[in-house]
Simulated assay, not measured.
Amino acid sequence: MKAYFKPFLAIVIILLVDQILKFWIKLNMSLGQEFKIIGDYAMIHFTENNGMAFGMEFGGEAGKLALTLFRIAAVCGIGYGVVYLIKKKYHRGLIMNLALIFAGAMGNIIDSTFYGLLFGESTYYEAAKFLPAGGGYAGLFHGKVVDMFYLPILQGTYPAWFPFWGGDEFIFFRPVFNVADSAISIGVVMILIYQKRYFKEEKKEEIYTHSEMIEE
C-alpha cells in the first residue's frame, strides 16, 4: 500500500486546491473580474470555457457532451494506468506524473459534469449563487470549466515588417488556465523530458528476458 500513498495524496491535494479555488472564484467574482498578483505580469482573471484546457473550444452542445464523455473515459483509462504502473513497479517519477495528469483531468471533469447543476449563471455584473432556487445554469455534463490564472508576461506590438501579424498586438502568455490545467501540463512535460530515464529500466528488463529465452 505504500506505493499507492504518494500518488493518491498528490491527487487528493490537487483536486482539493483546484476545487476550493474554483468554488471561491465562482461565488465571489463576476465574469471578467480580475485582481493583480504581480503587477501586469500575473493576475487572477475569472473566465469560463465550454471546451478543453487553456480555454480552447469544442463545437456546440453536442460537442460539449462528447468532450465531457470523452474526458470521463480518458480519466478512467489514466486511472487504470496509474494502478497498473504501481503494480508493475515502474519508475516512481512516471507514476507521479501520470497521477498529476489524472488529477488535472479529474478536476476539469468535475466542472464539466456537475457545475451546471450546482451553480447559477456567472455574469459580468455579479457572482454565481450555489444551489440557486431556480436550479443551475445547465444540465448534467454541460457545465463550464472555471479558469483564473492569467500570465501576460510579455506584451507589445509586432513590427510592421513581421509576416502576417505586422502591427498586431501580441501577448505572451495569453491563455487563462487553472490548477487542473497546470497539473496536466506539468505531468506531460515531465514525462517528455525524462522519458529515457523512466523507461530505461523497463527496456533493460525486456532485453534480459529476451536473452533468457534465446538461451533456453
Rank of each mutant, 00 (worst) to 15 (best):
M1C: 03
K2E: 11
Y4Q: 07
K6G: 00
K6S: 01
F8G: 10
L9M: 13
L9S: 12
L9N: 06
V12A: 15
I13A: 12
I13H: 00
I14L: 13
V17G: 11
I20N: 01
F23G: 08
F23T: 11
F23L: 13
W24H: 13
K26V: 14
M29C: 04
S30D: 07
G32C: 06
E34K: 13
E34N: 13
K36S: 15
K36Q: 15
I38A: 14
I38L: 15
G39L: 05
G39V: 09
D40K: 13
D40S: 13
D40V: 08
Y41K: 14
M43D: 12
I44Y: 10
I44S: 07
I44R: 12
F46G: 04
N49W: 08
G51D: 10
M52S: 07
A53L: 10
A53E: 08
F54Q: 05
G55D: 12
M56T: 13
E57I: 13
G60L: 09
E61Y: 10
G63M: 08
K64Y: 00
L65I: 14
L67D: 03
L69Q: 12
L69C: 10
R71V: 06
I72V: 15
I72A: 09
A74F: 09
A74H: 01
A74T: 15
C76W: 15
G79Y: 10
V82Q: 04
V83F: 15
L85S: 10
K88N: 14
K88S: 11
K89N: 07
H91T: 05
G93E: 01
I95S: 02
I95R: 01
M96Y: 14
L98H: 01
L98M: 12
A99C: 08
A103Y: 09
A103F: 05
G104A: 12
A105Q: 02
A105R: 00
N108M: 02
I110D: 02
I110L: 13
I110S: 07
S112A: 12
T113C: 08
F114M: 05
Y115M: 05
G116R: 13
G116A: 09
F119Q: 04
F119G: 03
G120H: 07
S122M: 14
L131A: 12
L131F: 15
P132S: 05
P132T: 06
G136D: 04
G136F: 00
Y137M: 04
G139S: 03
G139Y: 06
L140A: 04
F141E: 06
H142R: 11
K144L: 08
V146T: 14
V146M: 00
M148I: 11
I153Q: 07
G156F: 03
Y158R: 02
P159I: 02
W161L: 07
W161E: 13
P163G: 01
G166Q: 05
G166C: 02
D168T: 07
E169C: 00
I171W: 02
P175Q: 08
P175Y: 08
P175T: 08
F177P: 11
V179G: 05
V179P: 05
S182P: 02
G187Y: 03
G187S: 01
V188L: 09
V188C: 11
L192R: 12
L192A: 14
Y194D: 04
Y194F: 15
K196H: 07
K196I: 01
R197H: 06
Y198W: 07
E201T: 09
E201R: 05
E202L: 14
I207R: 10
M213R: 00
I214A: 11
E216W: 05
